[in-house]
Design a protein around this nucleic acid. Sequence first.
DNA 1: TTCCATATATTAAACGTTTAACCTATTATC
DNA 2: GATAATAGGTTAAACGTTTAATATATGGAA
Lengths: 332, 332
Amino acid sequence: MERVSLKMIANELGVSIATVSLVLNGKNKNGRVSQGMSQKIIDKAAELNYVPNNFAKSLKMGRSKTIGLIVADISNVFFGSLALHIQICAEKAGYTVFIGNTNEKLIEMEKMIKLFKARQVDGLIITPTEGSEKLIKDLLKADIPFVLVDRSFPELDVDSVLINNYQISNVSTKHLLKKGCRNIAFVTYKQDQFHINERKRGYMEAMKEVGLFNPENVKEVRYGFLEKDIRKAISQIMKSEKKIDGIFFATNSISLAGVKSLFNYKIELQKDIQIMCFDESEAFYLLPFSVPFVKQPIEEMGKQAVRSLLSQVERHANEERHVILNAALINK
Amino acid sequence: MERVSLKMIANELGVSIATVSLVLNGKNKNGRVSQGMSQKIIDKAAELNYVPNNFAKSLKMGRSKTIGLIVADISNVFFGSLALHIQICAEKAGYTVFIGNTNEKLIEMEKMIKLFKARQVDGLIITPTEGSEKLIKDLLKADIPFVLVDRSFPELDVDSVLINNYQISNVSTKHLLKKGCRNIAFVTYKQDQFHINERKRGYMEAMKEVGLFNPENVKEVRYGFLEKDIRKAISQIMKSEKKIDGIFFATNSISLAGVKSLFNYKIELQKDIQIMCFDESEAFYLLPFSVPFVKQPIEEMGKQAVRSLLSQVERHANEERHVILNAALINK
DNA sequence: TTCCATATATTAAACGTTTAACCTATTATC
DNA sequence: GATAATAGGTTAAACGTTTAATATATGGAA
């Protein structure tokens, strides 16, 4: 079954390729093609089940109607949800999504950017890995439309869709304080990414404000050694001189590993120790007590990312370039 | 910054486009281009940072080096993991992955197939939705390389990567029996998909074998009304005339909702009632007791799917066309 | 009649590749 | 010295579009 081209339609109707192209692209505005012929072409295209050749189109037009999505790990629910909404949203606008994983590795991120550039995507949506400023700067120089999501680099002037990390962490910490906690630990990744640092800052400021901040209470774990480091961190927390009565986990993976690790101790969670998690997990619903957590507006993030990107790609009036969405503290 | 083409390289070196093309594609086998010129071309390409135009290439060659992945919902961990490994594997082979979600809807699946066909992907990896035989048949007719994964249609002769649903369910049920259960319920989706039916069959055969099968103990819930229907099913189970002492949940979503729902009753799980789940969930690790579950070899599934697809696309000797991988019963 | 507008289509170049077929100069063979 | 083989390229068509520029026929106005 041979592929149907404009040429075939043109031949069957005895007109030129150009005429067919004009009609099928709705570009016969000023009555360039007669009503009758227009209809004939449309009908014939339907009859032959014409599907445009996107390669030829893209080659000619220089636009591919594709976007590349680069996330850390698509098997992570957060990124999976983000990808879901981005795909749905992009499709509505006529764009198709390529997907790539970095596993939080700079070199993989670089590879993916290169790959997608070679694929001539019209734009990129990226959750940048730690230390990828240079890559992002290169992207800026290369004048490729892109938008960062979930994370960004404050010193770079790039389009981004983020949440109010500082504020929500601050509020969440205060929530623990309000519940009566006086000695709250903060468990985070050993890294240097703005969004994570902001979460820490939110916690620290809240603690300082009431004169209860203790640097000892900030525990850092390594991404590649999560389980092991968490065990150690929790152990330290449990042995703490001054009894810890609250723990704030800075990310979803840390939250899960942390809670899991806490089960090894005979304490009553949400009684002896209050916990606060970042991101939702279906796991929380299986626990015999309720876990307060920070819920990110993932669907909205995806939508805004696509919107922001397409406004660059299609040269709209450049909407808001730095979108900050509000996360919610869920406590039921 | 203008895009670098073969033409530019050719002009700079005063040779023809063809020569440059041959060299950069490693097709100057029989010494068609001299060593010296070859090197010059390679160097110049590097210097100008040449990136081939994939559209032109695909247009000419009729192959795009892309594959389309169609899953139900990329935010579901199972599909996310599958996608992760498929992407990694495909990339290694020089293919890039498009992603699409069906949300288990036939019409969305159709849309995605159409979309990816228009994108001229070289092949498709699909987890087909219920009732999509016709779409799959059309795909066969259209002679498009594809492979079904996770699910298939036994009456259609299509390439597929599945797990041993019947056998693992049979074994898992027997495991419950061995633990002393005598009246085991099976909770599944109200649908008609082969892989799910096979799970049911595995359970039924095991029960029949020991003369303990009771049709009343099979409960069906609707995909779109999971929470509600599960509550009802669990309620029925708890009210069962003859006390239920084991429950086998047929999918990961059902497992989670089921366990969650069970918490509303004052029974001791894994004591009063033994449970068995399909698919792993991080949530299980948060429970104070261990949950036995069926673990699917997702990475292997992804790898095999890509391998199988590419053997079609690249016309290798057609390896195994019906791959059945073994799931494992995890019980720690 | 001559000129102009209008309606309706066509022509042809261009996008950047790939590749079969062809060309030319040099060297080897008889 | 004639012929053939080889090395080292080049030419040109083709893939399927888009679109600016051009063509042609018809009818109306002057």
